[in-house]
């Protein structure tokens, strides 16, 4: 298994390089422009100067390799320097990946925004998994019971109603009518005592619930379907016939086997936590990674989007590997050698 993991990681290096090249080419081909959001009062000659100052005058391939050098060599060194306080080489003149819109290092922006994304999106994911797995198990075990029907109905609503709508609905109810929860997330808020903790809970409540509903609906559907498949298998009948307790049958044998497709769904979802939730972050002004990505795309901030996408790609590759390894743990019949 370890050798398999090591080999997969090695293979993923060229994969990641290919991904980064394709993404860079894609962003370069896209017809949006970093000066698009400037007022029309700024004349074309000035716009051209701005483009040149961003390095857009150089050929595509040179810009790609510059980015690669900045991202793979300069950025890790800069982070290392910040952590250790050491000076490595000519750090004064080492160019970091600078966002075009803010003209500040992209990694600083990401680090600044990671906390709120992890809090809100991460928490919503945990909530979603905690709700969805038991919900799926019970729904399947008591198929077509009232519980199952209600669960089905709610989860259908969960993925057929887009978050731009549920988010707004919650704001109208809880912020405008009832006035219980703040509609705007305060990213500078620091938790230091019970009061500030309670405020943090309140400001996280709505975005977390919106996202958790959307995620839980999907995961619970996969969980239920997979449980249903396994409940009718022969091994279940055998186990019951042998007199194994019903709890053990369901929770140990069936659940374990049913988790295989669900693990994929959950593992594929983890990188998206980092990616943030574009719509929900916008509605509640959580201003995390998702909001960063969308403003980057809108203003065609290539260094920013490229870096975010690349980190995203790394996470996808890693979590796909984790999912594959988990298959092996859950089902000993799957072997990777």
């Amino acid at each position: 298994m370890l050798r398999y993991a090591a080999r997969r990681l090695l293979i993923s290096i060229p994969t990641l390089l290919a991904i980064s090249f394709i993404v860079f080419a894609l962003l370069d081909l896209a017809p949006s422009d970093p000066t698009a959001n400037l007022p029309l009062t700024i004349p074309p000659e000035v716009r051209e100067k701005i483009r040149l100052s961003l390095g857009l005058g150089e050929p595509f391939i040179i810009r790609y390799f510059k980015w690669l050098e900045q991202f793979l060599i300069n950025e890790p060194l800069a982070v290392l320097e910040q952590m250790t306080g050491l000076t490595i080489g000519d750090s004064e003149n080492r160019l970091r990946v600078l966002s075009w819109a803010t003209r500040s290092p992209v990694t600083d922006l990401i680090v600044e925004r990671l906390p709120q994304t992890l809090w809100v999106v991460g928490m919503s994911y945990v909530v979603a998994v905690v709700i969805a797995v038991p919900l799926g198990v019970i729904s399947a075990y008591r198929q077509y019971s009232l519980f199952d029907q209600i669960g089905t109905f709610i989860s259908m609503l969960g993925f057929s109603i887009p978050t731009f709508f549920t988010g707004l609905l919650l704001i109208v109810i809880f912020s405008v009518w009832l006035g219980w929860l703040p509609s705007i997330y305060d990213t500078t808020h620091v938790v230091e005592d019970w009061d500030s903790f309670w405020f943090q809970v309140k400001q996280m409540a709505m975005p977390t619930m919106v996202l958790a509903l959307a995620n839980a609906s999907q995961i619970s559907r996969f969980m239920r379907a997979s449980m249903l498949d396994n409940l009718t298998q022969d091994y279940v009948r055998t186990a019951r016939a042998k007199g194994v307790r019903e709890r053990t049958v369901v929770l140990l044998h069936v659940l374990r086997n049913s988790l295989i497709p669900v693990v994929t769904v959950i593992a594929l979802g983890v990188p998206t936590i980092f990616g943030g939730a574009i719509v929900t972050e916008q509605i509640f002004r959580v201003n995390g990674i998702g909001a960063l990505l969308i403003t980057g795309i809108e203003s065609n901030d290539i260094p920013l989007v490229q870096t975010l996408t690349f980190i995203f790609a790394i996470l996808i590759v890693v979590f796909n590997l984790i999912a594959d390894l988990l298959y092996g743990v859950l089902d000993p019949r799957i072997r990777y050698d």
Binding site: A101, T102, E112, R113, D186, N287
Partner: peptide, 28 residues
């Protein structure tokens, strides 16, 4: 060198009624 001066660009010293305490780009 203009774009590399992140500290200056985010916290310009001014003559106006307010001065920057913390600048979070695209946020607050």
């Amino acid at each position: 060198r203009a774009p590399e001066c992140t500290e200056q660009n985010f916290n310009p010293i001014g003559t106006g009624p307010f001065r920057v305490v913390e600048f979070r780009a695209n946020d607050v």
